[in-house]
């Protein structure tokens, strides 16, 4: 018997048409289209080739997140690849957001990877430009940037909706993916950020995950402008949040990680706190509760780098799930989980 004739088993992903009114078979898409407040969380990728390390990192997030983001060498630091992590997570029954950065791969590699990921059961993809190589652990690497995040979005949308590669060659079974993009509302040029987001929606974005929001007034102005443009009705926006560990860590992040804006007031509050970690968590919960009230926000995206153990508590304390249990680990054949 040749390998192709063998039954591939229950843990193997299947090619399925999306439910009516949906572009993908993604659980995250179902939650968002059902009008529920969605939660996604970022996984800290292991520097290891052991799948158990991925599952261990996913466990504290899976309890509360509708999908887990697999980062693609964020900060230009080398870790296990996002396609590898996403594939493992889908096999374990988790919804996953496969992040693609334009920094490291050209259009040939990326379009092939998208098909590969879709075949592995990945249903959400987040299209990112990517941090410059200079901030990472291997600054001598060649920056690729063949696509930018928008041409990448348009490319995957063309693959999905037209069934074509960018070359015009036909794809027999198109990748059914829910398309995501990022936005950073709190960094310059502030007045143009909403316009840029609108452009990403035109390019094909179905959902947006933002960078960290620590500055609520700036974010509220951003959202007001989005509502004026009518963009909030065309896309699902998940606001990015995360717990700070200490005032020192916050300062370090602000000056060393690209695109992070933390107001002085937040750092001061961390400084005055007797237990900084607990205060960081409290700030995060408060932010979630305030962000939830803003019109046009469909969910939150938690980035708790090295504080993954706090994610579950933060989400439960914030009350955004309202008793909903997002992830059901499947035991046998893949089956759409109840929303």
């Amino acid at each position: 018997m040749s390998p192709a004739d063998q039954d591939l088993g229950d843990s193997f992903p299947q090619y399925e048409a999306p439910p009516p009114g949906h572009v993908s078979g993604s659980r995250l898409e179902r939650v968002l289209r059902a009008g529920k407040f969605a939660v996604t969380a970022e996984l800290n990728p292991p520097d290891s080739a052991d799948p158990a390390d991925v599952l261990e990192a996913a466990r504290p997030l899976g309890e509360v997140a509708d999908a887990i983001n697999a980062t693609d060498a964020s900060g230009a630091n080398c870790h296990m690849s996002s396609i590898g992590i996403s594939s493992l997570l889908t096999r374990a029954g988790y919804g996953t957001v496969y992040q693609i950065s334009c920094r490291d791969r050209n259009r040939i590699a990326i379009q092939g990877d998208v098909l590969g990921a879709a075949a592995m059961g990945v249903r959400n993809v987040l299209c990112l430009t990517g941090d410059g190589v200079g901030v990472g652990d291997q600054p001598g690497a060649k920056p690729v940037f063949d696509f930018d995040s928008l041409s990448l979005l348009r490319t995957i949308r063309t693959m999905r909706d037209e069934g074509l590669f960018l070359s015009g060659r036909k794809i027999t079974r198109p990748p059914r993916m829910f398309l995501g993009a990022a936005e950073n509302p709190c960094v310059p040029p502030h007045e143009w950020r909403p316009e840029r987001l609108a452009k990403k929606v035109d390019a094909g974005a179905d959902f947006i995950q933002t960078n960290y929001i620590f500055d609520l007034p700036v974010f509220e102005r951003f959202m007001a402008r989005l509502r004026d443009l009518g963009v909030d009705r065309r896309v699902f926006l998940l606001a990015g949040v995360g717990p700070l560990a200490s005032a020192k860590a916050a300062r370090w992040m602000r000056s060393n990680v690209p695109g992070i804006h933390i107001p002085d007031a937040v750092i001061e509050r961390m400084e005055k706190a007797a237990k900084p970690a607990a205060e960081g968590k409290r700030i995060c919960v408060e932010l979630i509760q305030q962000i939830r009230e803003i019109k046009g926000v469909s969910g939150i995206h938690v980035m708790a780098y090295r504080r993954e153990h706090q994610v579950s508590e933060i989400i439960l304390e914030s009350g955004v799930l309202k008793g909903r249990v997002p992830q059901r680990r499947r035991s046998a054949r893949p089956r759409p989980a109840p929303v």
Binding site: T129, G132, L150, R196, N211, G259
Partner: peptide, 30 residues
């Protein structure tokens, strides 16, 4: 643009509208 973006600024623009990769240069997209 050091990332040769064709559709707008990246998310790394520094305060004052300076480039993430070349801090002395104004962001091409700003």
């Amino acid at each position: 643009c050091p990332k040769q973006l064709r559709n707008g600024p990246c998310g790394g623009v520094r305060p004052g509208g300076f480039c993430e990769v070349k801090p002395a240069m104004r962001c091409v997209w700003a």
